[in-house]
Nucleic acid binder design. Structure first.
Length: 437
RNA sequence: CGGGGAGUGGCGCAGCCUGGUAGCGCAGCUGCUUUGGGAGCAGCGGGUCGCAGGUUCGAAUCCUGUCUCCCCGACCA
């Protein structure tokens, strides 16, 4: 992509309304624009990141054996009356009526809908287990939206639902998501720690929040130092096998958010206690027959008797993750994208756009890197060097390839690593092979 | 939902108290000079001062209402 033609309205100054760093940087880097309180438009650069994050989430859900589908954003109020949540949900639910005055709502979540779909089609224990997910926009009419995408009203969420015949099956499903989440966040360069979460009236130990550690996180977290050193599962995980040992490893050490924190643990942990801050990016929980019973989602067991299915629900805040990644990875100059979610891998900076030699070298790089499958954002603008460097640092592409007349005289170009700030002058051939890796 | 604050050009702000026909920096456009970390000079364009009423000869400024946005708290992926 040529920057001269790309729609990325970057800003030198920070809009007054943006308080936290991810909000500020997303506005300044031209990724998003606010349309209403808590509602944002994704501009091309931001959209690329959102799609990358979404893809990683999707891949890991698929690997875990979960099947993607897509449910509507607008739902019928009647469905929610079946579970009793239409009245219970309160003003956070955006209620709307259609032209026939039918009561509708913009979905804040999809338990009722997926349960309804499931019960129509699945009648036998032989249909189980089923793991289903979708990635869809949700709306929760927060009293007070804030922190940019971190607490918006409209947000993109991956929500998955599991259906099993009994508790043991439900635990296996739960473990699949537990492991998939560890992998998902690790792929985005994040340290995400599972923390025991309140499981409400259901009880039990099967409810975990996944918190990304970032200094600016909104909740205080307390955990054992050992958790930070744990290696997340790799691609060799066998989802068909027993995942309990992995889950046990990650849940055996103390970890809690401030709400669940037991101060007595601090003394017990001593020097192993880590106090940090975190951002919740995922939540998994088992809720048994909470919806299947009232909504009569039952299957016939081996003995012919109907039994309500055991369910669980598993969310990841996809749009929030984009902000969380920035909170966890930035510096004074701007964003520092992990390679896996970067909108482009390489920023090609032509320091002197009207110099024939520079232009030619850049065009060659641009074409060759493109052919090699490397995403390149080519700053071909007729602008000053300082502006180009500042914009590149702000947008945070992992690699900058700087081409200027000074180096070019000696056949050299400069490669800068955005994360470390390290620069090296290399030959053009070496630059190519370096950036293709 | 309780408490606080703000709406003036694309962005950041001043002007409001003490009414007199709107200003500064950045950004934009044109020209010249510059050119490896957000250039300099000269010129140009762009604002129904959130909206609606009211007071007044005259309202960005005073009064009333209303909408929107932000911050703190309670609530939440």
């Amino acid at each position: 992509m040529r920057l001269s033609a790309y729609f990325v309205p970057t800003m030198k100054e920070t809009p007054a309304e943006a308080q936290i760093v991810s909000h500020r940087l997303m506005l300044r880097a031209g990724m998003i624009r606010q349309m209403s309180a808590g509602i944002y438009a994704w501009l091309p650069l931001g959209h690329r990141v959102l799609r990358k994050v979404e893809s990683i989430v999707r891949e890991e859900q698929d690997r875990a054996g979960c099947q993607e589908m897509l449910m509507p954003t607008v739902q019928s109020a009647d469905l929610w009356r079946e579970s009793g949540r239409y009245d219970a949900y309160g003003p956070e639910m955006l209620r709307i009526s259609d032209r026939h005055e039918r009561e509708m709502l913009y979905g804040p979540t999809n338990e009722e809908m997926i349960t309804s779909i499931f019960r129509e089609e699945c009648r036998s224990y032989r249909d189980l287990p089923k793991l289903l997910y979708h990635i869809q926009w949700k709306f929760r009419d927060e009293v007070r939206p804030r922190f940019g995408l971190m607490r918006g009203r409209e947000f993109l969420m991956k929500d998955a639902y599991s259906f099993d015949m009994n508790f043991e099956g439900a635990r296996k499903s739960y473990n699949r998501f537990f492991v998939a989440y560890l992998k998902t966040f690790a792929r985005m360069g994040l340290k995400a720690i599972p923390m025991k979460a309140a499981s409400g009236p259901i009880g039990g130990d099967m409810s975990h929040e996944f918190l990304v550690l970032a200094d600016t996180g909104e909740s205080a977290v307390f955990c054992h130092r050992g958790l930070l050193a744990l290696e997340p599962p790799g691609d060799d995980v066998d989802y068909g096998g027993d995942l309990q040992p992995i889950v046990d490893t990650w849940t055996s050490l103390y970890a809690a958010t401030d709400e669940e924190h037991d101060p007595a643990q601090e003394a017990a942990l001593g020097g192993d206690l880590v106090k940090a801050r975190g951002i919740e990016v995922g939540h998994i929980f088992y809720f048994g027959t909470k919806y299947s019973k009232p909504m009569r989602a039952v299957v016939a067991g081996p003995d012919g008797q109907d039994i309500p299915v055991e369910m669980g629900s598993y969310g990841i805040g996809v749009s929030r993750l984009v902000a969380a990644i920035i909170e966890a990875s930035h510096d004074d100059a701007g964003i520092i994208w992990p390679e896996s979610v970067a909108p482009f891998r390489v920023g090609l900076v032509n320091l002197k756009a009207d110099d024939a030699g520079c232009a030619q070298a850049c065009e060659t790089f641009y074409a060759n890197l493109g052919r090699a499958g490397v995403d390149v954002l080519y700053d071909d603008r007729d602008a000053r060097a300082g502006i180009k460097f500042a914009d590149m640092d702000l947008m945070g592409l992992p690699w900058q390839l700087v081409v200027g007349p000074r180096g070019l005289k000696n056949g050299l170009v400069e490669i800068k690593n955005r994360a470390t700030g390290e620069r090296q002058e290399v030959t053009m051939e070496s630059a190519m092979s370096h950036l293709m890796g």
